[in-house]
């Protein structure tokens, strides 16, 4: 079973991202579940959401404390939340950031066996006019980057799931996913 944790801020689409990832894996024939941290959500507040993907029926209903992958939608969260908490040995962190990987490794106190991937999802979202410049919606871009960096889902099923789930700007979201897929850097 693969377990993924998303960190975002209320309104950025972290919860939808966890659902889209689940649906993409479901399209590929996997068993899935996805859920938000069961909080009282407000726009701008830190939000976490989770996805489980497995080959057999998923019966576990409790929280995820030791994820295989962590996806961070908002660079400002790095100062607010311990985003690598519980990350499995050999696990990967995918960040929306422009900061250099050397700096990130130190700031996040990543251990040598944690992998790091970065993507400029904010720029990609603004380019495709997703959300506003002040509050871009970066989830589709990060999912594209996630597909490439982890190989957990294919780009095609991911884009199908994106198209099924975003309420507006369907093509723009698909293009953002594709662009992030092509531009994510694995360090």
């Amino acid at each position: 079973m693969i377990e993924v944790r998303f960190h975002g801020r209320g309104g950025q689409g972290a919860v939808i991202a966890s659902n889209i990832l689940a649906e993409a894996a479901f399209i590929e024939g996997k068993e899935v579940s996805a859920f938000p941290f069961f909080g009282v959500e407000r726009r701008g507040a830190p939000v976490t959401a989770y996805t489980r993907i497995a080959d057999t029926k998923i019966r576990i209903k409790s929280g995820i404390y030791e994820p295989d992958f962590v996806v961070v939608l908002d660079p400002s969260l790095l100062d607010a939340v311990n985003i690598v908490e519980g990350l499995k040995s050999g696990g990967l962190v995918l960040l929306n950031t422009k900061v250099s990987p050397e700096k990130l490794r130190i700031n996040l106190k990543l251990s040598p066996d944690h992998k790091l991937a970065t993507v400029k999802a904010t720029d990609i979202a603004i380019k495709h006019k997703l959300g506003s410049k002040a509050a871009p919606i970066v989830n589709s871009a990060l999912l594209g980057a996630f597909a490439k960096a982890t190989g957990v889902v294919g780009l095609e099923s991911l884009i199908e799931a994106v198209k099924n789930n975003v309420p507006i700007k369907v093509e723009e979201n698909a293009l953002a996913a594709k662009e992030a897929y092509d531009s994510v850097v694995i360090h």
Binding site: N19, A22, E23, F26, E31, V32, S33, A34, F35, P36, F38, I58, K61
Partner: peptide, 12 residues
């Protein structure tokens, strides 16, 4: 149905 654990969790 259990709050959040079913109500807000997606499954097939």
């Amino acid at each position: 149905e259990d709050a959040f654990i079913l109500s807000h969790t997606v499954e097939p």
